[in-house]
Amino acid sequence: MYNLVEHGIYSENEQKEDPEKYEEFMARIEAGEKIEADDWMPDEYRQTLIKLISMHGISEIMGALPEKEWVPKAPTLKRKLGIMAKVQDEMGHGQLLLRVAEDLMAPYGKDRGDLMRDLLEGKLKFHNVFHMPTKTWADAGVIGWLVDGAAIISQTNMLDASYGPYQRALQRICAEEVFHAQHGEAIVMALAEGTKEQRAMLQDAVNRWWSALLMFFGPASASTTGSSKQEVTTKYRIRKSSNEELRQAFLDKYLPRVFALGLTVPDETAHYDEDKQKWIYKQPDWTEFKKIISNNGPRSKERLRLREIAYENNSWVREALAPTAAMS
């Protein structure tokens, strides 16, 4: 699951770059060539990728935490196995992506330990949806169906990204995300076809997740929240569509399905405008969005606290695993 929000981990590199090398680089990506980890790349490109991929990776890892709440609680053995497999995949995605990010960070002398510290210090942000609370089993379904569904749309947008290692990681991740969305859909279908209480539980979950889902794709333009990396990522052929185009694609795919299940969304104005050929919806509260991604969301502190405890509590294990630790 992914979305790029702005954060400043690394200071801008001031050194002047070779214009010839830059031209050559741009020609390569414009010709559809893939850039590899050891290839020359402009500093701006490297930094954009580090921010994008480390945030994507850490979001996968933080994303395991809200779903984890429902892993043991899953109501049947099959659901237990399904959600366990799903959350394990997400951790695997996190691992894969952090490795890609680590290669990019190597020239700065940074590694995964720095990313973990940046996360705990609030310098590395994670996706808005993973700051939200989960209240019932229906949340596990809605996360799988709609949050992963949104992730598929946002990641498919980068399946042809100019950076080879990221592009290849995304191919694998997207293939797995499709299973996750099916897993979520199966939970949602069972609830939608279930008892009155189960349907109510599902509707309540959709209501609570709605604005987080709209926020998922980020603001339409930089003017909404002050800055946006859309232009840079488009320039470097990392992504194709804009935030708003992705949001429209999401609404296009999922709103008819939501309505077909007899569910509603908490926005009476939501409808498809035939003339404008797009979905009309009420803007989510972007001030709230900014607050959430600066770790002031409903569950931000608690989720970060889990990682902090894990980090501190296992420090003796890390010391024991350090290359110098082995006793003769």
């Binding site: 890892i61 395991a64 935490l65 984890k68 892993v71 043991p72 196995l81 366990m84 497999a85 959350v87 394990q88 951790m91 695997g92 996190g94 691992q95 952090l98 995964r112 889990l306 990682r307 405890i309 894990a310 509590n313 296992n314 294990v317 890390r318 695993l321």
Partner: peptide, 21 residues
Amino acid sequence: SEWLGLAPHIEEDVAFSSITQ
């Protein structure tokens, strides 16, 4: 499964959750 996301490192989280599953 209670350990999920809390293991000493990410690789272990992936391995342990696979064993648990």
